[in-house]
Structures are given as C-alpha cells and as structure tokens.
C-alpha cells in the first residue's frame, strides 16, 4: 500500500511540472490555433536562468533571507530555502516571459495572416534555433544544479515494511504548480485581460472590432504561458539537478500530449491531462516496464485522437463555413 502511495506522490510531482508546460501550449493554441513547438525550449531557458541565478546570486539571496528571518547570515532553514527558491522561480518567470514576448513579436506576429502551416513550421524552426544556440551558449554537456534543499531532511512515515518518504522539494514543486495554476485561472476568468483573452480566442476579428487590442492580448498570452514554462524549468532543475540545452524537447512533447488528452485549448483540461499522464508514467514504471515510459504519452495521444479527438474536457467546435 505504502508503495502504491509512493508512486502516486512521485506521479503527482511529475504531473505538476507537465501541467505548467501544458498550460502554455493550451493557452497559445486556444488563442491562435498554433501549436507552439518552441514552448519546450522556453522551459529549457527557464531551467538555465534558474541555474545561473542560483549559481551567481543564490547565496546572496539566501543570505539576505537568513539575515532578515533568522538574524544570522549562514543559518539556512526550510523557510529561507523556500523563499530563495521562490525568488529564483520568479526571476526565471520574468526572463521567460520576455523570451515569449520576443518570440511572438519577432517570429509569429509577422506571419499572423499567412497560412497556419507557415506558423507551424516557424515554430519548429524557433525550437531548433533555441536548442542549437543553447548548445553554443551554454555548452552541450549537462550542468549540475545547486541543491538549495540539500540540508533538509525528507519526511518519513511508517516503518521498514511500509516506508513512505516525501521530500520537501516534491511538496514545494506540487504546491507551487497548484498556486500558479490558481493564479492563472483567476487571471483568465476574473480580470479584464482574461476576458479579452477569452474574447480573442472566441473570435479574433470580432474581438478586434469590439476595440480589444488583439496584438497586445496575444502577446500577453505568450508571456503568461512562457512564464509558467519557466517556472516548470526551474522546478525540474531543482528536483532533477541536471540541465542541458536539449532537455526541453521530450517534456515539451509529453506536455503537448497531456494538453491534447485534456482537450487542447482548455485550461482545466491541460491540468487534468498532465496529472493523468504523470500518474500513469509513475505507475507504469513502478509496476510495469519503465522502458516504455516515454512511449506511454504518445500511445495515449494516439488513443485519444482515435476515441475522442476533442480531448477529455474539450468541446467539439463545429467549423464555421
């Protein structure tokens, strides 16, 4: 039983990171009907921003919090580790939002009125551009992430037979993911920007006739999605302390599958799909054959396209002629 619960915990923390990436896919798709293949690379850039921030400023940030909260600069507590992590996540989010803005402005906007296939090919091009310039700039060997939670003990429950271990980092990742999703939900359903986003996604031309600055709304959507991917990048870097320029492609594709599973274009669906995928992967590698773990996402993708192409929570839209 404890083993099963351990798999669930592993799956949920993995699902949380998929969800953060999937949200960006689904938002951009909802608003532009574009599958932004460069999204996985934004996630990679987030991880690297986090890496260099914690390498060059992590100690100072941590020292600042220690001084403020504990009175001594070198006393790291759980609270200061969490606060430092949050600052690093925020910095990566800002950087990634700017990257998202630039990609939209430079690569996608000039092609807005051209056929959709051009946009799609551009997206693949942008993705390759980041992968390979990443290898030039950062070097293609894997980099190790500094461990902010190094000195923190994991919480253990039960005894030898039914041991259950939860490490604070997993909880941090899961909670941050949920909080960011709630904030996103609030933005979409309870703010002017969110209303504008929904209007643009409903009908681009009509929205612009109603006086909605569609260009700005689309840019904001890209920024929001990219910021979430950046947060995911940092959190994955913290959990699995190895980052490299090609790290974005597989999680990116998997998150895309999760978004399709939940119903692409649907924000709640993306989160649901990601958690299903995370749990399914954890259970498959626990009880079945971990060799097929990476294939699972794509098997699910094929299955959902055959059975319910609109996804679990997606609504089938009739094409207007």
């Amino acid at each position: 039983m404890a083993e099963f619960i351990q798999y669930l915990i592993n799956g949920l923390s993995q699902g949380g990171t998929y969800a953060l990436i999937a949200l960006g896919y689904t938002m951009v798709f909802g608003i532009l009907q574009l599958i932004n293949f460069a999204h996985g690379e934004v996630y990679m850039l987030g991880a690297f921003t986090g890496l260099y921030t914690s390498k060059f400023a992590g100690a100072q940030i941590s020292e600042l919090f220690n001084r403020l909260l504990n009175g001594a600069p070198d006393q790291t507590s759980t609270l200061t580790a969490i606060l430092t992590s949050i600052v690093i996540v925020l910095i990566a989010m800002v950087v990634c939002a700017l990257v998202g803005l630039c990609v939209e402005r430079l690569a996608y906007r000039p092609l807005r009125s051209s056929p959709r296939i051009n946009l799609l090919i551009t997206a693949v091009g942008v993705s390759l551009f980041f992968q390979y310039s990443g290898q030039i700039v950062f070097g293609s060997d894997p980099k190790a992430y500094p461990d902010l939670f190094e000195n923190l003990e994991s919480w253990t429950f039960g005894t030898d037979e039914n041991l259950l271990v939860i490490n604070p980092l997993q909880v941090f990742v899961f909670v941050t993911a949920i909080v960011l999703m709630l904030i996103l939900r609030h933005i979409i359903f309870h703010t002017r920007l969110g209303r504008a986003m929904r209007a643009v996604s409903f009908n681009h031309d009509l929205a612009s006739l109603m006086g909605i600055p569609t260009d700005r709304v689309i840019a904001a959507t890209f920024m929001l999605g990219s910021a979430l991917a950046g947060a995911a990048g940092v959190m994955v870097g913290m959990t699995y302390p190895k980052v490299e320029p090609l790290m974005g492609s597989l999680p990116g594709l998997k998150a895309f599958c999760a978004a399709v599973l939940g119903g692409i274009g649907n924000v709640t669906g993306a989160v649901l799909g990601s958690f299903i995928l995370g749990l399914a992967e954890a259970l498959l590698s626990g009880y079945g054959t971990p060799t097929y773990k990476d294939a699972l996402a794509f098997a699910i993708l094929i299955l959902i396209l055959l059975v319910k192409p609109s996804g679990l929570l997606g609504v089938h839209r009739t094409e207007k002629v």
């Binding site: 592993n10 993995q14 699995y240 626990g286």
Partner: peptide, 8 residues
Amino acid sequence: VDFNSQLT
C-alpha cells in the same frame, strides 16, 4: 531524469 518509480 526521474527514477523514483524504479527506485521505489
């Protein structure tokens, strides 16, 4: 990068 399930 994730080996938690195998290790569990």
